[in-house]
Design a protein around this nucleic acid. Sequence first.
RNA 1: GCCCCCGUAGCUCAGCUGGAUAGAGCGUCGGACUUCUAAUCCGAGGGUCGCAGGUUCGAAUCCUGCCGGGGGCGCCA
Length: 549
Amino acid sequence: MPPTDSIAELQGAVEDAAKALRDGEPTEPAPTLDRPPKPDLGDYSSNAAMLLAGSLGDNPRAVAERLRGELEGRLGGAAGSLDRVEVAGPGFVNLFLSDAWYRRALAGLVAAGEDLGPAPTATPERILVEFVSANPTGPLHVGGGRGAAYGDAVVRLLSAIGHEVEREYYINDAGSQVTNFAASISARMQGEELPENGYQGEYVVELGKEIAAAGIDPGDLEAVGDRGIELMIGQVRATLSRFGVEMDTWFSERSLVERGDVDSSLAKLDASGHTYRHEGALWLRTTEFGDDKDRVLIRSDGEPTYLMPDIAYHWDKLERGFGRLVDVLGADHHGYVARLRASIEALGADPGSFEALIMSLVHIVEDGQRAQMSKRRGDFVSLDDLIDDIGVDAARWFMLWRSHETTVDIDLALARKQASDNPVYYVQYAHARIASILRKAAEEGSEMPESVDAVERSEPLAVSEKALIKRLLEFPHEVHEAAARRAPHRICAYSTAVAADFHAFYRDCQVVGAEGEAVERSRLALCLATKRTIAGALGLLGISAPERM
RNA sequence: GCCCCCGUAGCUCAGCUGGAUAGAGCGUCGGACUUCUAAUCCGAGGGUCGCAGGUUCGAAUCCUGCCGGGGGCGCCA
């Protein structure tokens, strides 16, 4: 029995009960099945009566009373799921479930094995998530790291609900910043002054040494630039790999230009009639598609703007068969979204297939001061430094535990000093604690309950056992919501809640050596299901679930 | 001026496709280790959900206006 069936049984009963009151017509919107704010208000509660009151022309509490009768018939009696139904507040229908229901739910959880996530979506899509895509002119900094952690988690979430998802990094290896980068390296190699707006970081000096050692002439700017980009991409790749992020594709902007894709996209736009010449430049009439002003595609000096290859790039993504394009962009690029979407529409594609997720800033705080993060000035905190400092798990957690649209501060001193109070350790500790219990059980000769019989245990369940079972049952829904809303931070919150419920259960309930063999077996089963859920949740975040701490 | 994000406990933030007495972590204060990991747990204190209207059985949540903070508004990328 899949773990969600216990919830589906209740949801179905509520919907059927509501339908019965409306001569078989379903309620729109569907009634909720929520966790009430306080435990003494029952295990689950529904707003069905409030939704129905209007169309039935009756007051919500009276409707709730009728629903109560329907629900008792469906879930009570022989079904044995129900202790009682209460009507409370403005007309909430509160379900108080029997121990039998909880035992069945637990049996379902354990029987599901590792597969505790949501059922695959009925409408799977091929999705390309482009993220990080930092200019290859310097090491990855913490802002890029947040994009990496977020984009990677979004991919994991979308995959978890059954989409076919790929990770891609767009390498800006064409255009003026590459020229500037080459000039900066070259200047360092020759001990000259950096060009105006040159890249000032110490890493540029290091790159220069490496490039010189490879026998490249500092005067050959093209060769210097090529090698510099290559070395930087190698570094970025290594950093991401260390961070647990593996891209499926590294897509070169230059390759687009060389293949002629930029020219063909331009021709396509021209043919569509959405372009025009003005003051020597070629413009795209993006205002026809919701942008606030038209945009230049080709400057009056004949050079394409940044937008042009990007249009070609997104067109290429669509041509590769992706039905949905997700771009994870830095906050400084959000003004760019409207014109890109407009451009995609101008090409005749569905603008709804393009989705931009805007990342807010991440600040590294040290000694109460925010570190600067300008690549040009070179005084930024690199992702590597952060990982060295607080580790991959903590770094990923702190980048993910807040909504991506909220600025995040990571106080290094605090993260170092309070490592033991860190929320990520709190969750990991619960996992390790369970592992320890299971080891202990094995030592005592207890068998791992890969399945439990729902009727085996006659002893009542403790309040904290029920709370934990109920929490585990929420997992599929939480994953689904987090994926749909592109909100991995919900998984952080959920993991914390699972850990808290587990710790409470641990406090109240002896597992190994519990009174009664059936009790011990069911509690071991609950530990197993909890361990799998925590590992699954952390896995969605790219965070490890240790066996020992 | 226009666009985007934010404004919720002392601090950092969840909750925002409407539900009951608004939550968590940190910090403060007070308790709990002869028991499967005390990296834990229990308790206390802490709130005009920026302000004002509106929508309705019901608003932190939706709508309008205003105030405050951040970011973006280039023939740069």
